[in-house]
């Protein structure tokens, strides 16, 4: 008995050590980023660990906050996240509910019509031409419409609704409720958990998206935060003698502190929000995968 206790204790030790190790691989780099963002240049360029600030210099943050595009980027990201998530929820539900009805005429065909899009795309250039031709260039619509519905999410929602007990709807019908009433008072409330999941995923995707903004938005003030951040990080890293870029004398250069400050500014909202949302994500992941 005693021997077992020993081995169990050793086992516990290993478990705690491994988990602490994993947490450190996440926490330490974050601390380094934070430290560099508030450090003066001579500290930044010094060899060695940089986990805890030894001297303070907030010029990196000043430079970041001075940049107008950071603020407009924040605003644009917020707008696209809210608008895009709203559109995604509504559209996904509009598609999922009819397709969940087994008696829907040609249900297989319409489902197939949706599913097939998971496997084919015409490529970047036709998509670009489409967005341009329907007049979405340089608008927030070019960021929220092309990816509005994910076929995969739609299927998950469809399966969820299909698994709801039919009897509820039927008894309401017998009571004389009309279809719209049933939809609004019964189906929608019951689908809330899965719609919340869709919303959370869509919101994270929108917050982190940048490629579409790079392609479709040619107005710097309308670009999203991630892209602005990318620019700040990359500026000045390429050697003009190898890239053949034009005169570098006037090219912008950003200090490492400024880059890290921009990172912190971009990460902060997510870092503040996600711990409170994680339980919904956990629930959503399970709903999605079990039914999927």
């Amino acid at each position: 008995m005693k021997q077992r206790r020993m081995s169990d204790r050793l086992f516990s030790l290993v478990v705690y050590a491994l988990l602490t190790g994993l947490a450190l691989t996440i926490v330490l780099p974050m601390m380094q980023v934070l430290t560099i963002s508030v450090s003066p240049l001579n500290v930044v360029n010094r060899y060695g660990f940089h986990f805890i600030p030894t001297a303070f210099d907030f010029s990196g943050y000043r430079q970041v906050f001075h940049k107008e595009t950071i603020w407009t980027g924040y605003q644009n990201t917020l707008v696209r996240t809210i608008l895009g998530t709203g559109i995604t929820i509504v559209m996904t539900f509009l598609g999922a509910y009819p397709l969940s009805k087994r008696q829907l005429p040609n249900r297989a065909f319409w489902t197939g019509f949706v599913v097939l899009t998971m496997f084919f795309s015409g490529g970047l250039i036709p998509s670009y031409m489409l967005v341009k031709n329907i007049g979405l260039m340089n608008t927030v619509w070019s960021l929220v419409l092309p990816g509005a519905v994910s076929a995969f999410m739609l299927l998950i929602v469809r399966n969820f609704i299909a698994a709801l007990p039919e009897s509820l709807e039927e008894s309401a019908k017998i009571d004389g409720a009309n279809d719209l009433y049933i939809l609004w008072k019964i189906v929608v409330p019951l689908s809330m958990p899965i719609l919340a999941t869709v919303a959370l995923y869509a919101a994270v995707d929108h917050w982190n998206a940048w490629f579409d903004s790079m392609l479709y938005i040619q107005n710097e003030k309308k670009q999203v935060l991630q892209l602005i951040l990318r620019k700040i990080i990359i500026d000045g890293t390429a050697d003009p003698s190898t890239t053949g870029a034009a005169d570098s004398m006037n090219a912008p250069t950003n200090s490492q502190a400024m880059k890290m400050a921009a990172l912190v500014v971009t990460m902060l909202p997510i870092m503040c929000v996600y711990p409170f949302l994680q339980k919904y994500f956990v629930k959503g992941t399970l709903l999605g995968s079990v039914k999927g």
Partner: peptide, 9 residues
């Protein structure tokens, strides 16, 4: 976090 943020880190 996006890969832009993560790549910076």
């Amino acid at each position: 976090l996006s890969w832009i943020v993560l790549s910076g880190i």
